[in-house]
Amino acid sequence: MRLNEFDYYDPATLEEAVELLNQKANGAIIAGGSDLLVALKQKLQTPNYLLSLDKIPSLKKVKFTENKLTLGSMVTLDDIIKSSLIQEKLPALKQAAWEVASPLLRYQATIGGNLCLNTRCRFYNQTSFWRSTRGPCFKTGGKSCHVTGTEERCYAAFCADIPPVLIAYGARINLAGMQGARTISLADFYNGEGRFPNVIAAGSGEILTGIEIPFPQTGVKSVYRKFRLRDSIDYPLVGAAVALKLDAQNKIEMITLSCTGTASGPVNIKSINEVLRGAVLKPEAIWDAAAAAAVELHPLKTSLVSPRYKRDISRVVIAEAIATAGGVTL
């Protein structure tokens, strides 16, 4: 599998990069490239040019202030793992970054790339030869989705590890485009649609420049829990990020839960707060809440395991994440 020919630009300023992206048609932004190169080899994407963000120094900045962390989109996952301040202030972010791919890929992979990760499906992430036997699915320009068989939409699964954690932390992202810069909540970056799963993929002509993560209030515990088929290197079958705070009586004051791996975007389970607020964390309450949360995930057969298995495992992963954050043994 060789790469198709393309042009390559690595401008030194953000302004040039934004201009180039909006002037020339059919380009792809390359950050670390560890995931994009596989897609290019499989001819899942056939851009005319790659726009590299390597030479823009401002995108590699890490800035701690009193109440938040601002990460440039080109900060590598390895940098995140090795930061003792992130470990101290945002432990679930470190945990999620550590669970992405393998150590080798984490030297290359960036936080921005992880947030912009494309959705995945057993019918999509295959070589062009494999895909040619079945004809194009909806995501590759065909009429219908191979997973459901009929529908005119794409159900590929969103499998990035870091977004659910950042959504649980209430992170915001900075985008730069022709109309200038804007900041939106990370949750709003995703549209839940499989084919073009985020604002940039849907064609906004913007570049993700940074991520602002507010430090949680004192006493908030955060956890990321991931389940995958191969422990050394794999995308999540399901991942759950939990942030919770207990009051003086050990009752839940607030809880947020965000999941990945099951739908076409990260799923923010808002009902968890109504279910568990005011409750004392006991195994029974956790299992009930996890079962109710798992019902809100609607996995389809986008990977090699059955949707039923995914639902069952989601319940366990969510329960374990809540229990770990609350310091409870299940």
């Binding site: 390359i30 490239g33 560890s34 596989v38 590299s52 390597d54 080798l104 890929l105």
Partner: peptide
């Protein structure tokens, strides 16, 4: 740093 050279463009 160890990096898989198949996943890195030479220009990078």
């Amino acid at each position: 740093n160890p990096v898989p050279s198949c996943s890195l463009l030479a220009v990078k």
